[in-house]
Design a protein around this nucleic acid. Structure first.
Lengths: 108, 108
DNA sequence: ATAATTACTACGACAGATGAAGTAGTTTTT
DNA sequence: AAAAACTACTTCATCTGTCGTAGTAATTAT
């Protein structure tokens, strides 16, 4: 299980990735992150929902409701063009980050 | 220039790496990190020195003085066996982290 | 009826990073 | 000779993002 300190700074990116092929909502995104990471990373609920607030405030996602006649009302999220641009930037940054950190990694 | 939020969780690892082949001190470590990362990551002074405190408190490094007759007195640091063990753990964790994050990266 | 699952929200605590500023000595430039 | 730059740290207050705990509210399973 990966510590969140390590992944800090990429939680937002993971969420945006999950919104690339269409709208989704908290619980579903949470499940999908867990699944995609093969249980190696589980984003805490509080982390997830506070990330939504931040992402929306920054204009990277927007939220809306769908009229559902079942269950508790869900808040759906959709990635914005700015969100996509941000996602791309983070992907590029990630390449550099990997290169840099790898210089400090030695298999002993 | 990589943001520290991204690298957070690996600052300690970078410092330990710098101590693998012998004792060093703050300013030198700082310069070496900057150089090794090809100016792509510059650790802030406050980050560096607060990392020393944490690492020493955790028993991963220890500090001492050398009697120098010149300049301002330096605090030297040396990696401990526990520090080496911790470093190895972080290196292994890093492999997993890379794999996980890479699943969320898409070149568009 | 009750437990489990789904889908959030609120709140306070904490660790690590940061900016700003200061101390103190040495070397280089003007 | 004075000023600036470099070396080598220290203190302090603040910010951001994550986390623990807890609670609300509806639906589905036992």
């Amino acid at each position: 299980m990966i510590s969140s300190d390590v992944i800090r700074g990429y939680n937002d990116t993971m969420i945006l990735y999950m919104l690339l092929d269409g709208e989704s909502y908290g619980y579903e995104i949470s499940k999908n992150i867990r699944k995609l990471s093969e249980e190696k990373y589980i984003m805490k609920e509080t982390t997830l929902y506070s990330a939504f607030t931040r992402l929306e405030k920054n204009g990277y996602i927007d939220s809306f409701y769908l009229d559902e006649t079942f269950g508790k009302r869900r808040t759906y999220y959709r990635i914005t063009p700015q969100g996509l641009a941000y996602y791309r930037t983070k992907c590029e940054e990630w390449q550099v980050t990997q290169e840099v950190i790898n210089k400090f990694i030695k298999e002993l």
